[in-house]
Structure formats: structure tokens, C-alpha cells
Design a protein around this nucleic acid. Structure first.
Lengths: 129, 129
DNA sequence: CTGTATCCAAATCGATACTG
DNA sequence: CAGTATCGATTTGGATACAG
């Protein structure tokens, strides 16, 4: 790929970081990934994304909605029903996120192994160095 | 893409998050992106990655080295010379990161527009709602 | 040049309690 | 059900000083 060159001060490269910060965080990645399989309700997402708190799901969904990546549809019934789904823009992002998540899954073993080697070496140095 | 299903408790899906956390953060993305154009020295990276502090560059590089994504080569000369480059694993990640960063750059305008709309609507509600 | 160590401020996040 | 509000703990990150 083309390396990003901040020295060029192209508006795109400088502001892209802000986008990556928002959309590249752990929970956003998982919300986008989950919404890839269709429209979901709030608690449905909460159940499916292991370990996310209500607060973080709310915050993440608001951010993605603000960025035009998910839509929020509220049905004024009792009890309330709110549905989330990807926008067109969100679906283009889904492709990218997908390859990223798959990369992580596919290379887990290699990374774990690398970590083990690194930690073992660090331990050695601490003990005998 | 395939949605991640934490309820399945597949070892890959559950631990992939840990990998994404490390490799998906802001600074890692930029370090990987920069190293895509070749081997770099510490201060070279620091200059090229706008806004990164010495501390965060060190922390980020250590993490990526631990995960087997970058190699660190130290030349015992005075003054010290340390070179960083991507491993084979790192180069496979570069592809993925590249599409991600490009997505952010290419869709910056759409996202900014969406944010402006969202914020305008929120302002309205605050003022007249 | 390439770091490490320390301190402190700010952001993040989870838990909990409460609301329409 | 789908949130909001608040609080305290943890994490993160920048600034600074120092070292091989």
C-alpha cells in the first residue's frame, strides 16, 4: 500500500486518523461485524457482543450513527423497540472490517506463538542477563 | 462477511478481540502503514507519524515486535542505530490495514457530512425540542 | 540516537441506580 | 426494552528528566 505521509499535509491523510479512531476501535469493529448479518435490536447486540457494557454499546452505536454508518429506527410502542442496521456506507466498511477481523482470527496462533517467544526471551534476560 | 458469534465460544473468535485491540489501535495502524514503504529508524518513524510521542512510539513498536509483526535490529555503534521493518506476518497485515486506511481517506467527506447533519439535528432538538 | 523512568492530567470504562 | 446519569477505578498518554 501507499504509506501515509503526514509531511504532505494533504487534508485526507491528516483527518483520516480521526475516522480510524472512531471506526477502528474494538467495539465498533464488533458492532459492524454483527450488523453485517442483518438488522438487530439493542439487547440482541448486547447479548451477541460478549463483554460489552450497556454504556459502551450505547456510546458506540451513537458514534456509528453520527458517522452515518448505522441507522437507528425507533418504534414508539410499549415496551420500546429500537432497531439498528448498516447504511450503504456501513456496508462498504463491513467488507474492510471483515478482512481485518478474519486476519486476526486466522493469524491468532502465529501471534500467540510470537508472544510466547518474546516473553520467554524477556524472562531469560531478567533471570540471567 | 461472516458475523462473529461469541455464543459459539470458538477459541478463535473469543481471542481475536485481543489481537484486534493491539493491532487495531491508532498508532499501530500508522506504524504498520509507514513501515510498508520499507525499513525505518526510530526517529524517522517519529518524524513521519505526526503527533506521536516518543513514549507511544516505543510502546507501540514493542507491542508490534512482541506480536511478531515488526523486527527490531540494533547496531551496537555510537550513536546507536536501530532499524524497524515488517516481518512476513506484518506484510500480510499491511494489506488489510491498507484497505482500512484507504477506506477512511476515501469516505472522509461522506462521514464529515453525516456528522454535520447529525450535529445540526441534535442542535435543533436542544434549541427547539 | 534511542531509548527508560517518573509523574500527572485526561480519557475510558464498568457498575450501579434510575426513567419513560 | 432501551436507554440516561453518575461515580470511582483503571488505563492511557504527554511532558520531562535522565542514561547508554
Amino acid at each position: 500500500m501507499q504509506a501515509i505521509d503526514p509531511t504532505a499535509h494533504s487534508p485526507g491523510a491528516c483527518q483520516a486518523r480521526e475516522v480510524l479512531d472512531r471506526v477502528g476501535d474494538k467495539w465498533s469493529l464488533y458492532v459492524i461485524s454483527q450488523l453485517g448479518s442483518g438488522t438487530k435490536r439493542f439487547n440482541e447486540l448486547k447479548r451477541e457482543i460478549d463483554g460489552i457494557s450497556q454504556r459502551m454499546l450505547t456510546v458506540t452505536l451513537r458514534g456509528l450513527e453520527r458517522d452515518g454508518i448505522v441507522t437507528r429506527t425507533m418504534y414508539p410502542v410499549m415496551p420500546p423497540r429500537v432497531e439498528y442496521s448498516l447504511t450503504d456506507l456501513g456496508r462498504t466498511l463491513l467488507e474492510t472490517v471483515g478482512t481485518f477481523v478474519r486476519w486476526a482470527e486466522e493469524n491468532l496462533d502465529q501471534i500467540e506463538a510470537a508472544r510466547a517467544r518474546y516473553d520467554a526471551r524477556a524472562g531469560e534476560i531478567e533471570a540471567f542477563g
